[in-house]
């Protein structure tokens, strides 16, 4: 192991890690919004939107991110929409993540039994009050593990960004391997940086799960 090499290229890696993290978090935030919207559409079976959302979810979940990125990156300019690597990466991640988040939130919503809603109605609560005070808090607790798993999954998926020439961790690693053939050091750095990003997220997930565990369990 050549430590000097590792130290020399740390700054470049930090820059790449920062890019990975920034685009990843932006994509996750958008995924969450898309997911909330789609989950609500499916939970309340909103006409017209309901089948469209299902089609989106199936397409998004059953195609690889790499292909989705190529479609956006090379496809959109063909129909006159200019793309740049960064927004393309975020768009691709959101397109993929939206469906995973939708399913995570939907399973949370559907875990709250219908009779809980009835119990709230029997107390005179409106639909909105029932959603806010009764359904959402319980659904959130159930959704957290799946949500955190999705966050980690999406952060890892950012490694595909290098395919549309984003200077992320993976791209930097491949680039440097190509230049200096220091494969071991480069791959070591790559793994280390992904761990540095993902371990805290994973830990946060565990803490959140523990704190929320009881909220949804048992009447």
């Amino acid at each position: 192991m050549n430590w000097e090499f590792i130290i020399k290229y740390l700054p470049l890696n930090r820059k790449a890690a920062w890019l990975t993290l920034r685009l990843g978090l932006l994509g996750i935030a958008l995924s969450t919004l898309i997911g909330l919207f789609c989950a609500a559409v499916r939970y309340y079976r909103i006409p017209v939107l309901h089948p469209l959302v299902r089609v989106y979810i199936e397409i998004s979940r059953n195609t690889p991110l790499l292909i989705q990125l190529f479609f956006i990156y090379y496809g959109l300019p063909k129909i006159g929409i200019p793309t740049d690597p960064a927004s393309c990466g975020v768009a691709g991640l959101s397109f993929l993540g939206g469906s995973y988040m939708a399913e995570a939130f939907r399973s949370g919503l559907e875990s709250v039994e219908a009779i809980q809603t009835e119990s709230a109605y029997a107390l005179g609560m409106s639909r909105f009050q029932t959603l806010r005070f009764i359904i959402l808090p319980q659904a959130a607790a159930v959704s957290v593990p799946a949500f955190m798993a999705n966050v980690i999954f999406l952060l890892k998926e950012t490694s595909v960004f290098s395919a549309v020439s984003l200077m992320d961790l993976m791209f930097t690693a491949k680039d440097l391997i190509g230049l200096y053939y220091k494969t071991t050091e480069r791959l070591f750095l790559l793994v280390a940086f992904y761990l540095v990003i993902l371990l805290p997220v994973s830990l946060l997930g565990t803490v959140l799960e523990r704190r929320l565990r009881y909220a949804g369990s048992g009447t």
Binding site: I115, Q116, E118, S119, A120, A122, F133, I134, P137, Q138, A141, Y214, A215, G216, S217, G218, T219
Partner: peptide, 12 residues
């Protein structure tokens, strides 16, 4: 007012 067989207290 209504009371259910399965109590239906709000668990959270």
């Amino acid at each position: 007012g209504m009371v259910f067989q399965s109590y239906e207290l709000f668990p959270h």
